[in-house]
Design a protein around this nucleic acid. Structure first.
Lengths: 146, 146
DNA sequence: AAAATAACGCAATTAGGTTGCGTTTAGTTC
DNA sequence: GAACTAAACGCAACCTAATTGCGTTATTTT
């Protein structure tokens, strides 16, 4: 289950525990990830009303990823998309969700599909698996009628 | 199972049956897809020794996709990647594979993981699903030792 | 509080992907 | 199979996402 930020989490503390600098921007960015299923750089820029330089966003996302806070989500629309790691399923080197994610081909929003279960990760000879993602794509309700 | 081109397939005929022009390039391109699990534009360019203009490749891929010959495969490295449709599982509007695909984060090669089974597609209210992909990422044997 | 380290913003650059248009090739009709 | 139509092709230019370098500012460490 996704943790909501009405749990009154201390985002600065979470950053510290992961060895990430506690700048105002990065605290707010982490907060964002607890609200949204997944985010692209563009979405983050919009959330900050374009007041934050895009380079800063790119570097913060890379830093979060390196420290195991977030992980990339594959998609067909060639945009880098990140999602929050959850302690139950993600480790520093192995990322997964137990459910599928739906990405709208029009508005690019992402939704959790709890009904779609991901298979468990099992080792396979010759492959060093870092992540497992079950990706569904199509159109969400709002975009279907366009 | 993946059909191999030692089945002596008539690629020109397959193109014709899908309403795609049978140019020399497109016949060879389709042939390529029967050899390789999935392809990016870059990989196609290399296969043709950069003799084919990239625009031609992009447009051929879009055409193949529109006519239901290939479909996009999501990945985290923001590259457009296509894979051959198989008649068993893909229709014009709904694409899936019954097994997972492994993408190497280093060499970008793709491998079928038949041991990983994709869940069946089931309709969900408010979502119009076009594709389902089970994506595993990491490093292949060759790239792990770098 | 001072020194060391990392984040930030700006400008410039790279790279994947797209568009317009004139030319060539494939498909169609007689 | 010659003439016409439609689509594919190649080139140049363009767009947008992502990256790099570097001087400045903020954070972390001691």
């Amino acid at each position: 289950m996704k943790i909501k930020n009405d749990d009154n989490l201390d985002f600065a503390l979470i950053l510290a525990n992961h060895g990430v600098s506690k700048t105002k921007f990065r605290i707010h960015l982490l907060n964002l990830f607890y609200d949204k299923e997944s985010l692209t750089v563009k979405e983050v820029m919009n959330k900050f009303s374009n007041l934050i330089n895009k380079v800063t966003i790119y570097r913060a996302l890379v830093s979060f990823e390196e420290k195991g806070l977030i992980h990339k989500v594959p998609s067909s629309n060639n945009l880098i998309r990140y999602s929050l790691c959850n302690a139950d399923e993600c480790s520093a080197s192995l990322h997964k969700h137990n459910h599928g994610h739906f990405i709208c081909n029009n508005c690019n929003q992402t939704f959790c599909l709890e009904n779609y279960k991901s298979p468990d990760i099992m080792p396979i000879d010759g492959f060093f698996i870092n992540s497992l993602n079950l990706i569904l794509e199509g159109y969400c309700k709002d975009c279907h009628l366009h």
